[in-house]
Design a protein around this nucleic acid. Structure first.
Length: 342
DNA sequence: CATCCACCGGAAATGTTGGGAC
DNA sequence: GTCCCAACATTTCCGGTGGATG
């Protein structure tokens, strides 16, 4: 009687951080370099596609540093919300709304005091859609006796310089570290290590894993795929089984990316998905019409076009869609949208 | 060279919420 | 409580875009 393949799901979860991260020696070295001997020597800008280990490498390398805080800016996308997050982590106190931003800024200056502090701002692009520039300017100019080191992480832009104002960039002066996508072989080895811990012996066919890592080198997506494949079979994970569950697995991955966004983000994404099946090029107006229909069927109130235009940008930053912008021309000023997939 | 496409995206307006001072 | 203020989500308003077309 064959047993189910999954014995411990933990190593297949995306928040599981292995003790050593492979194929990232140079990047780890570069980070250690900046944070050596207990003092912060420079700000950092880390960029690279999704699922290339940016966040994991940062967490692992800065494990030893006490006075640090980590903010996921896709959840905390304004100066106020990010500052609140930073303060809560540094002090352990709950902070409510209703203060002025300058109050939070003053509190932060007090709390950092003489200590060196590291602030990690992940998914920085979401912050830059709003008043992120002001926050970065404040943090780089903040007058405290200790050093403040910033680590900015982006999945979407290789260059920070043209995303922020010159005065901000010039006081930031970050060192840039780029993460290249893994090769299929590297992705294979990484997922194999995790699979060996999570799955029972002989339960994963080599061809199955080869298929996954040839399709996507995004480790996060690969983990969702592998985990879903393991959960949906009672015997061995075969290549054809991984192919069968490919779409469902991507659906799970997309659900994970959208989990802390609004219901309207999900409806909007569903609208794009549905239209993508029918057409090969979609523009914004059609998407909005389909979104309105979906709102009706799910009994949700519809948000305005302007608002949804911003949400569409969020989906683009998450790499769930690809958009080509036309600023005028025969078709008018619009976006051509395509669904992204594994 | 005027017109048109179709909506981008900035800015101001609106309504809600919570903190602080009285 | 009441008043004022700021942050925030969202709506409303609208000027602007640039290549094709006539």
């Amino acid at each position: 009687m064959p047993e189910p393949p999954l014995k411990d799901p933990t190593p297949l979860q995306t928040n599981y951080i292995p003790q050593n991260i492979e194929y990232r020696e140079q990047e780890i070295e570069a980070l250690r370099d900046v944070f050596s001997n207990e003092s912060v020597s420079q700000n950092l800008f880390i960029h690279g596609p999704q699922g290339t280990g940016k966040t994991h490498v940062t967490h692992l390398t800065l494990q030893e540093i006490d006075n640090k805080c980590y903010v996921d800016c896709s959840k905390h996308d304004t100066q106020y919300k990010a500052l609140k997050q930073v303060l809560q982590q540094l002090t352990g106190e709950k902070i409510g709304d209703g203060y002025h931003t300058s109050d939070l800024q003053r509190k932060l200056v007090e709390k950092t005091g003489v200590l060196d502090t590291v602030v990690i701002l992940d998914e920085i692009d979401f912050l830059l859609l709003n008043d992120g520039d002001d926050l970065l300017y404040f943090l780089t100019r903040m007058e405290t006796r200790g050093q403040t080191g910033l680590v900015l992480i982006s999945s979407n832009h290789e260059d920070l310089k043209n995303k922020i104002e010159e005065r901000t960039y010039s006081s930031l002066q970050p060192r840039r570290i780029g993460f290249e996508p893994y090769t299929a072989e590297e992705a294979f080895q990484i997922l194999l290590k995790r699979a060996q811990k999570a799955l029972t012996d002989q339960s994963l066919q080599k061809a199955a894993l080869t298929y996954i890592t040839a399709t996507t080198q995004n480790i996060t997506a690969g983990l969702y795929w592998l985990k879903h494949a393991a959960e949906t079979t009672n015997s061995v994970i075969t290549e054809s089984h991984t192919q069968d569950v490919q779409e469902q697995a991507f659906e799970k991955y997309a659900g994970h990316l959208l989990s802390h966004f609004s219901e309207h983000h999900r409806l909007l994404y569903q609208a794009v998905q549905e239209l993508d099946v029918e057409n090969n090029s979609i523009n914004t107006g059609d998407i909005y019409t389909r979104y309105e229909e979906l709102c009706k069927t799910y009994n949700e109130n519809t948000l305005s076009k302007r608002r949804l235009s911003d949400f569409l940008k969020h989906l683009e930053l998450l790499d769930l869609i690809e958009a080509e912008y036309h600023y005028g021309g025969q078709e008018g000023k619009t976006r051509d949208v395509k669904l992204a997939s594994l």
